[in-house]
Design a protein around this nucleic acid. Structure first.
Length: 570
RNA sequence: UGGGGCGUGGUGUAAUGGUAGCACAACAGACUCUGACUCUGUUUGUCAAGGUUCGAGUCCUUGCGCCCCAGCCA
């Protein structure tokens, strides 16, 4: 067995699941000669989100760590909520995250077997057909503090149960008319054991089995047995299924079939977003976002479109760890992960998001110099490119201040700043309109300071800013995304309000940016860094050939912004 | 308030009963033609109270707090 400690990215200790797995393999007779077998079992009733990524990384990661296998199994036992669209999106997302399943399976593959096992239980007198309707059943179930009462149909004969169940299967009864239940214990303090429903009648078309069935197994009746059939050694799920484990165990034991071990871990919460399927659906349906893959959504498809890489998501899952404590992860951990990955791979470009014109009064009109610029300082093999330098340029509006604070290293009246890969310039004049708005900055450049020249090296200036030629640049649409919600926990809204009231009205800002020519040539999906701004991704949907539209994935860390906001607060 | 879980710095996550560590964040400094990256350093923690023990985050007792369960959803 391999050592679980080598996951990379710093996290060298084992989590509690790995520890338990190792104990099991060291001590359990039935595991001798076997390897770890896990499964990722989504219901295809929606799009996967970052919380699922944690489960995917865990299940597939365990298999990889221990040289075992992991299946992708769709828990498709409720045809009214499921569709092939979701099946396909889930397959895409799992693969995109970088994982290959051993087998692609469906709970519906086992419908026949599950049905046979149900008949077995009936024949053994431990399952019965119940005529109680939903309301009556709820009433008989009791409450958290009061025991339930036996169904009046609990003691039907085996023959009658067999007959009734067969007729349920044949379609003789309408939806809801009858259920098949296990005879366990209506007084159990665990509500899951109070004669749970095994089958319900649903005259619904299933996306895989069509109209072959009109009775469908419940989750509890399907899940453990599916694990068992597949030879899953460790069935890993989230904490809310903990109360179901006694049932899971009871079914395996009662059916006398291979018995996987269910283990639960805490699902993740993320600050500044919502994760429940219902709320995500609501955001989509009420058009608060453009769709499941809106770049502001915490869905895998949204993060992918935003520009997150599989590597960054895996790194994130590694960093947050696995435990049984319901934690809330600060979204900065997610943002930090994508920064760390993109820093190593993203080519650098210059882009001015909020341009202000600079005229170099001593620079020849009509002249263009091609300046050499490094593509990625983190990647020596990345090479370099040429950027046009001209008399008229754009710089970022916030890189100039007329009356700056003391630590402001950028351009100011009579001050000097280096233009990255260009020259050192000095600001001589601020041209304004009648209202006092700055129209342009008139500056002079120092010809001895050309980037890369020997004379440039001696010249030290505190600040370096990015720029783009006014005449030799392109213009692109850039979408500046911010967090979708204003509050850390959008769900805790004041009385009478909902999470929707916490939506950030400025979660997207669209600008036209001036960019160096190369930026306009990037292909959809390209991930780049706009120097001193952030990481950006050419949108896969809205970019057209030769006309990319950029999404801001995440800004760069900004010590200056931190410093200024802190001073303002003080 | 029946049952099941869970409480370790700001956020996560470790620690056969034996020096409370790691990551992220923050802060300070160094470096810097990205106020990025990198490097160095620093701050901050065992829910509480008792008990057992030479020694308790870990074991025991009591209390407090949080999460999950009353679908013919998963």
């Amino acid at each position: 067995m391999n050592d679980a400690s080598d996951h990379g990215s710093g996290n060298t200790h084992k989590n509690f699941i790995e520890i338990e797995i190792e104990k099991d393999f060291a001590s359990k007779q039935e595991l001798v000669g076997r390897t770890v077998y896990t499964r990722f079992p989504p219901e295809p009733n929606g799009y996967l989100h970052i919380g699922h990524a944690k489960s995917i990384c865990l299940n597939f990661g365990l298999a990889k760590t221990y040289g075992g296998h992991c299946n992708l199994r769709f828990d498709d036992t409720n045809p009214t909520k499921e569709s092939e669209e979701y099946v396909n999106s889930i397959k895409t997302d799992v693969n995109w995250l970088g994982f290959q399943w051993d087998k692609l399976l469906y709970a519906s593959d086992y419908f026949e077997q599950l049905h046979d096992w149900a008949c077995q239980l009936i024949r053994e007198g431990i399952a019965f057909v119940c005529d109680l309707n939903a309301d009556e059943m709820r009433e008989h179930r009791g409450t958290l503090t009061q025991p339930g009462r036996n169904s009046p149909y609990r003691d039907r004969s085996i023959e009658e149960n067999l007959d009734l169940f067969a007729r349920m299967k044949k379609g003789e009864f309408p939806d809801g008319a009858k259920t098949l239940r296990a005879r366990i214990d209506m007084t159990s303090p665990n509500l899951n054991l109070r004669d749970p429903v095994l089958y319900r009648i649903m005259h619904a078309h299933h996306h895989r089995t069509g109209d072959a069935w009109c009775i469908y197994p419940m989750y509890d009746w399907a899940h453990g047995q599916s694990d068992s059939i597949e030879g899953i050694t460790h069935s890993i799920c989230t904490l809310e299924f903990e109360d179901h484990r006694p049932l899971y165990d009871w079914f395996c034991k009662t059916l006398r079939i291979y018995h996987p071990r269910q283990m639960e871990f805490a699902r993740m919460n993320l600050t500044y977003t919502v994760m429940s399927k219902r709320k995500l659906l609501q955001l989509v349906q009420e058009n608060h976002v453009s769709g499941w893959d809106d770049p502001r959504m915490p869905t895998i498809s949204g993060l992918r479109r935003r520009g997150y890489t599989p590597e960054s998501l895996r790194m994130f899952c590694e960093r947050i760890g696995v435990a049984r404590f319901s934690s809330t992860i600060d979204v900065v951990v997610l943002e930090g992960s994508v920064r760390d990955h993109l820093n190593t791979i993203a080519p650098r470009f210059m882009a001015v998001l909020d341009p202000i014109k600079v005229v170099l009064t001593n620079y020849p009109e009509g002249q263009t110099e091609w300046m050499d610029a490094v593509n990625n300082p983190e990647d020596p093999s990345g090479g370099s490119r040429q950027i046009p330098f001209t008399r008229e340029l754009y710089i970022e509006r916030e890189d100039f201040m007329e009356t700056p604070p003391s630590k402001f290293f950028r351009l100011k009246p009579a001050g000097e700043v280096r233009l990255r890969y260009g020259y050192v310039i000095q600001c001589n004049e601020v041209v304004k309109d009648a209202e006092g708005n700055i129209l342009e900055l008139r500056c002079t450049f120092d010809p001895t300071t050309k980037s890369g020249s020997p004379t440039a090296i001696e010249r030290k200036v505190k600040g370096t800013i990015h720029w783009v030629s006014a005449s030799e640049s392109a213009e692109v649409e850039v979408r500046l995304y911010d967090r979708l919600f204003l509050s850390e926990n959008p769900e805790d809204a004041p009385a009478g309000k909902t999470f929707l009231d916490n939506i950030n009205p400025n979660s997207i800002r669209v600008v036209r940016a001036k960019v160096e020519p190369e930026v306009a040539k990037q292909l959809p999906g390209a991930k780049v860094q706009f120097e001193r701004n952030g990481y950006f991704c050419a949108d896969v949907i809205d970019s057209k050939p030769g006309v990319p539209v950029y999404n801001r994935i995440v800004s760069l860390k900004d010590a200056w912004a931190r410093m200024t906001t802190r001073d303002n607060k003080a």
